[in-house]
Design a protein around this nucleic acid. Structure first.
Lengths: 210, 210
DNA sequence: GTCTATACATGGATAGAC
DNA sequence: GTCTATCCATGTATAGAC
């Protein structure tokens, strides 16, 4: 059946990206991972470009769907932090971020792959942005932050951290801890008393002009 | 002359990584970029692995050296921010971050490349860590931050942002702006009056336990 | 839709002349 | 140290039988 094979190839592409990296992801390696004949890559997708582009979209949609509902019910920075840790652990194990890292690296010099990868990443970014917008609007920090930009920064940074983890797991863990410490710090500002908040705001308004 | 050819190959490897990406970086493409014979890759370096590892180290040392002195004279978060912007613009143009992105992606599934890439990144991290340690020690934020972890987070995030920029330049610019806004915010806390600082500290001490 | 076979390009690596 | 030539593996893609 066609749908079965197409699906197998999409999944095969994703596992190959994780296990072999973009440099060794080929029609043959994908077909082997999918357990199907190599020629079927071209029958179903026409070219490697198209298969990788489709796999990127497929993988991102599949994964983002797992969190959409839950993210919608998050209201505070502290809640977001806790759930973010959970998501991060799950997606790390699933290889989602590793896939994005490999595709992003490949897309740098591969015009056909770039828009597809951007679209895949965008699926994540949209969700992050929605939560951040909601959470920051209810915070004294809202006035000084840009959820649209921050969502993109968060997504890109996670990819960078995942790649870093591949060559220095200890360093990456230390980096994640430091960032979380920073986020906890921001969450603490949320709960500052009104006098202190006013003082902080006043100072920020004077300085944060750019 | 041997030193000349070795150097040419190292430089050729770096430009090839930027222009073609890790997936299409080969002994032939590097030799072409270097303007030397393909067989010389193996005469001088033995294998592609070794050449890439050497190129990574070579490139990082060369680039980091440009900033070491200047970074040593930076004393405040605001100064660091301004100089960081300058460094970022220069290194982006030189392709330094793009190279690290490609090597990191390749290293994920390439045991021999991983330690070399980690070492190259570490050269940058060490410098960032030194400045951050100095700057944060003089700041009320010092008590709540970990320069070692932050330096790693900064380096990894920049790689992620660079990769993201390759597929969505507008989004990446927005992300960088948002992060800079955040950094300016942190710099503002540095200059808070003593009363407000005490209030912030008090609150943070109570919350930032992890 | 799927398989075998195959053409044709590219890449890693070595041998041996210069 | 450098060049030519070459071997062999891997990769993209297509043709044609089933």
């Amino acid at each position: 059946m066609s749908a079965g094979t197409k699906e197998k190839l999409l999944e095969g592409a994703l596992t190959t990206l994780v296990e072999q990296g973009i440099a060794k992801t080929s029609a043959r390696s994908i077909a082997a991972a999918a357990g199907v004949n190599q020629a079927l890559v071209f029958y179903h997708f026409g070219s490697m470009d198209e298969l990788l582009a489709a796999a990127c979209r497929h993988g991102a949609e599949q994964r983002v769907a797992r969190y959409r509902d839950r993210l919608q019910r998050i209201g505070t920075l502290a809640e977001l932090l806790e759930f973010g840790r959970e998501m991060h652990a799950q997606e790390r194990q699933a290889g989602t971020v590793a896939i994005l890292g490999q595709l992003l690296a490949g897309a740098q010099t591969h015009p056909r792959l770039a828009p597809a990868t951007a679209a895949g990443l965008e699926l994540w970014i949209v969700e992050i942005e929605k939560v951040l917008t909601r959470v920051l609007a209810a915070s004294p920090l809202g006035e000084f932050t840009d959820p649209t930009g921050l969502a993109r920064a968060v997504a890109a940074s996670f990819v960078g951290l995942e790649l870093y983890e591949g060559v220095d797991p200890g360093g990456a863990e230390r980096a994640l801890d430091a960032l979380e410490q920073l986020a906890v710090l921001a969450a603490a500002v949320d709960e500052l008393g009104p006098v202190a908040q006013r003082a902080v705001r006043h100072r920020l308004r004077r300085t944060a002009r750019r």
